[in-house]
Amino acid sequence: MSYLESANSLPLYLIVGVVLLFIAGLCLLFIVKSYRAGLAIGMDRKVLIKAVTSSASFTVLPSISILLGVIALAGSLGVPVAWLRLSVIGNLQYEATVAEMAAENMGTSLDSSLLTLDHLVTILAVMTFGIIWGCLLSIFTMKKYSSKLAIGRRSSAKGGGFASIAMTAMMIGLCSTFVGSYLSQALRTTTFVPFLTALVSALFMALFDALSRRRSLQFLDSFSLALSMLAGMIGSIIFTAGGIR
């Protein structure tokens, strides 16, 4: 059996399936607990359902991007390892970087013609071990840390105080980081597509925002982010087809 045949063998799929099934069960448990708690503290059922539907629609497109990461990594690590690693902890940037670092430290590279199963299990061990720290901190310190922060002791009706304002500022900082990097690329090089994509996406967001203020189009509110992203992504295809880099 060749390296890729072994790396893509059925038992490995089953092992990954069991791990992911457990994590999916944990997510379902948290949905049930928080939904029931939301109703119990007097939150509107519609608000809770909207949180679920808007999050689901929001997630579809970025998930396809993560799926592309699975496809990219599967070429060298096989589907089960790529599937497992991109479904839990980490992110594509981390997984690809760390897989390459692990391969380099064993004197090889992420090339299926050079890798062996020994390399594969070592790379998986490094990828897992390198990213467990957030989970460990959560297990051992979350209860104490969150109680010090007094999370959940206030009601929204009383206003969010500085925390809410700081979070808005934090989000402005987060968005500025990415948009600023695309703008700098457009100014420094001839790479315009990321910035133009962001611009198209923002313009559509403004359009959907204006439309969803109308009573008959209020439903758009839950889908405005996903639809704006889709418009931006279609824009990137058009720009690239038009010869813009």
Partner: peptide, 15 residues
């Protein structure tokens, strides 16, 4: 389109 998911996300969120 798939190379530009993150710019599309932060463009909309940025607005």
């Amino acid at each position: 389109a798939f190379d530009n998911v993150i710019p599309a996300l932060f463009g909309a969120l940025g607005f």
